[in-house]
Design a binder for these strands. Sequence first.
DNA 1: GCGACAG
DNA 2: ATCTTGTCGC
Length: 218
Amino acid sequence: MKLTFHLSHPWDVTLEEAERIQNQYRHAVRIAPLAAEQLTCLTAIAARNRQDDILVAAVTADVVKHTTEIITEREKTTFPYHSGYLAFHQAPAILKALTRLNQLGDVIIVSGHGLAHPRRFGLASHLGVLLDIPTIGCARRLLPSNELQPSEDPLMDWVIDAEGVVGIAVYQQNSKNPWILSIGHRTDVDSLLTFKYLWLKNHRLPDPFNLARRLLRA
DNA sequence: GCGACAG
DNA sequence: ATCTTGTCGC
């Protein structure tokens, strides 16, 4: 699929330049509601490194059309992993993988953080802003810039930073480790709650996010 | 008692 | 991400 870039910048940069880019592009993040009807076709992205390569799995699952598309990709990375700079490590490979998808979801679930990031510009926000598409971040752990705040729902916490709420933490099946969902781009907290509802309720179809993560084991 | 900064 | 394969948590 031909990707349309709303913004672009070099990826082969120094750590200092990367931080500058994050501080510049973070202002392009838009917080907006996503309706449930816009959550029927999801694309999930997961990536990990192997030596100097990034392995990417992308899955698009359309609940209405009842289709699932799976792509795996491998691409060299030039930027080593540093906490807070995951996008510079993985995004080029992820973008290459997205190119190979025939269908892109209404919203992209990205393995990593969105606004739950020291500069409010994690991988999910970064990808969303570049392509100007709705994204949600989904990560296993919090970065130190953020913390949890209990909600009325015992199975859910708010994810906050010094400025306010940036996401939700979801405790699945009484697990002590929550999944950290955060706003990426063109989504909001309500979108996350809607997504959580659909995600936990819909066991009929393969969960694209879990599928993408599983694919990285091969 | 040792570590706890996404992947 | 991975190595850890019975044990939790401030």
